[in-house]
């Protein structure tokens, strides 16, 4: 398939700990075209580590191995750190959970976007500024010129996350990894940010990996969902067919959340089977 953007085959990530080696990710495989893919799992399922490994942000003490980890035909595990850095932020971008921690606190938002752009592309100062402003406009910031000169602590969480998206998208990446991009935001702001993200991804024909613990949110946003449990993929399913999920874990995860208008007392709980992790 020529429009495969990312191909992951048998990805494994191992962390050394005091008591021995711990495998955080144990043989994850999936491929991604120009589509929206959700990775869902609970804490400790390895979903974030999978995203970080693709981005090349795995902590140095951990070991990453895979039969194949290819972005646009390039083997990510064998290219040099320099080539990897050139990819990062340019063709592959990542949004993290809390904008407070991912934006540089002592640099204005505008300057950060300009810096990002100028690291990866040869553009003049005026052009960079114009593109940054256009990008801020694209993430529906009403007064881009004002926000351009603000520091991250001077904006709200939702605004910060939009600025983060603007910074990540300004180089026109082909693959975007969003790790819990809206979990730190209020519910109403959450939807605004998702709308912006959705529009931009569709307009630019990017591939998106949306990592989240919230199965409902992911299934309403993505085309396809990968469900992870204990470092493994237990199910891959089209979001529209989630109701017919086969794996008891997926079904349990869907069921156990309270839903407005459905009275269930007590809530069904997940009966974890050891064979799921096997």
């Amino acid at each position: 398939m020529s429009d495969t953007l990312l191909d992951v085959d048998d990805l494994r990530i191992t962390f050394p700990t005091r008591t021995g080696l711990v495998q955080a990710v144990r043989g994850v495989s999936f491929s991604l075209g120009r589509e929206r893919l959700g990775i869902v799992g609970e804490s400790g399922s390895g979903k974030s580590q999978t995203g970080r490994a693709i981005m090349g942000l795995t902590p140095p003490q951990a070991e990453v191995s895979a039969k194949k980890l290819a972005f646009d035909g390039m083997d990510l595990l064998s290219i040099s750190p320099r080539e990897r850095r050139a990819l990062r932020g340019n063709r592959i971008a990542m949004i993290l959970q809390d904008p407070k921690y991912s934006l540089d606190p002592v640099m204005t938002i505008g300057r950060q976007i300009v810096e990002t752009l100028r690291t990866h592309e040869k553009v003049g100062k005026t052009e960079a500024r114009e593109r940054a402003l256009a990008m801020l406009q694209a993430v529906q910031i009403r007064d881009p010129a004002r926000v351009f000169d603000l520091y991250p602590h001077e904006v709200s969480g939702g605004m910060g996350q939009r600025a983060m998206i603007a910074m990540m998208l300004v180089t026109g990446p082909e693959l975007m990894i969003a790790d819990e991009p809206t979990s730190a935001l209020d519910v109403t702001v959450q939807l605004d940010v998702l709308n912006i993200l959705d529009k931009l991804v569709a307009e630019r024909g990017m591939g998106l990996i949306f990592i989240s613990h919230d199965l409902r949110l992911v299934s309403s946003f993505c085309d396809r969902v990968v469900v992870m449990y204990a470092g493994k993929v237990v199910e891959q399913i089209k979001a529209s067919e989630l109701r017919d999920a086969q794996h008891p874990y997926t079904r349990g995860l869907l069921n156990c959340m309270p839903k407005i208008g459905f009275e269930r007392h007590p809530l069904p709980v997940l009966d974890r089977k050891p064979e799921w992790a096997a």
Binding site: E42, S43, H213, D214, L215, G252, L253, C256, M257, P258, H265, P266, L267, P268, V269, L270, R272
Partner: peptide, 15 residues
């Protein structure tokens, strides 16, 4: 808490 754990804790609280 994770969603599945949330359900357990909510049930406990109701109980």
């Amino acid at each position: 808490l994770d969603a599945s754990v949330q359900a357990e804790v909510l049930n406990l609280l109701e109980e």
